[in-house]
Nucleic acid binder design. Structure first.
Lengths: 173, 173
DNA sequence: GATATTGATTATAGCGTATAACGATTTTGA
DNA sequence: TCAAAATCGTTATACGCTATAATCAATATC
């Protein structure tokens, strides 16, 4: 029996008592939020033993693949305000995973991973593959790829190019 | 060469300078996060004139569709900690949109929308339809439905049922 | 009727995010 | 060349969202 509206049993009122979610059941934003929280929770659980957050992994990954970037470049790429990036890179440096080195432009630093940072990143990449597999398990690789495609199709226009109020919409299929 | 990794032009270093995102480009979590932020931003923009947040809309909607629920039931349904729900419902009550009324169980309140709350909710529902249309415009109704289905298929198992570490995975397609 | 549980609340702490302002440095353009 | 503007990293700060523990009143349990 596939109920269309999402419903939950209320632990409190033991009788009947299910909650009608109305249009929330058809809301992309609500579904995205729930999915994102669930996936991030899985990520955090997977990475908990190494004490690495999603944001930290993304920073290590970007520095590892783009050695020598300055802070602004990394933070811009990851949509992190440069002011908030300071504490992030501080923590990674304190743990001996990344380092700020002098750049030709003396206002900035060139960021690199340390040997230990590169080594950890390899572990993290492997863990991340495990995490992605776990997440994809419920829908399978094919649907996972579909989902990725749909998400970037959804994100790109909202993110960068403004949506014109006057533009025809709804028949993009 | 079609670069597989997502890349961004660096505004700073004018030459070359694109950022390699590596496995982030194929990460469901990262894609979900970006999509969710983009969609929520669109929501906030759409609802800004009425000063209603996504959380507030969800509360009004659930109370409107389930009059008489107690705070715990609403907050549980929306995955809001009951402690944090207090300020939320306080604000709605202060604005004259919802009200706490005496319940038979005198520890709790029965929540209802006021007349003004019901009226606003109608406006919000209309606005929400506009918002959803705007969001769906980039991918069309068909793909929007696909996306919703994929998201709930992804969320449900991670959310409720634990994923067994020993279970076979990856070939669910 | 003593004890445990529930519902709402307060206080508090943490994290993520946002802005403004600052000092040092580099770039610019008159 | 030199003053003004822009850039880079940083600090301070504030807001929102989330999480936990503790409290009080009321109810349920046995």
């Amino acid at each position: 029996m596939t109920r269309k509206g999402r419903r939950l049993a209320a632990d409190a009122g033991d009788t009947s008592a299910e909650v009608d979610f109305g249009q929330l059941s058809q809301s992309l934003g609500y579904a995205l939020r729930r999915a994102q929280l669930a996936v991030f929770k899985n990520f955090r659980d997977t990475f908990a033993s190494l004490d690495v957050t999603p944001a930290q992994y993304s920073v290590l990954l970007v520095i590892g693949r783009n050695p020598g970037l300055k802070q602004t470049q990394v933070s811009d790429a990851l949509n992190i305000k440069r002011a908030n990036f300071v504490a992030l890179i501080d923590a990674l440096e304190r743990r001996g995973l990344a380092e700020r080195t002098a750049a030709t432009d003396r206002r900035s630093y060139a960021l690199y991973l340390t040997a230990s940072g590169r080594k950890l990143l390899k572990t993290l990449d492997a863990l991340n593959a495990v995490h992605e597999d776990k997440v994809a398990a419920s829908i399978g690789q094919e649907r996972r790829a579909q989902l990725l495609a749909l998400l970037s199709a959804l994100t790109a226009p909202l993110d960068g190019g403004e949506i014109d109020d006057e533009s025809e919409m709804g028949t993009a299929g």
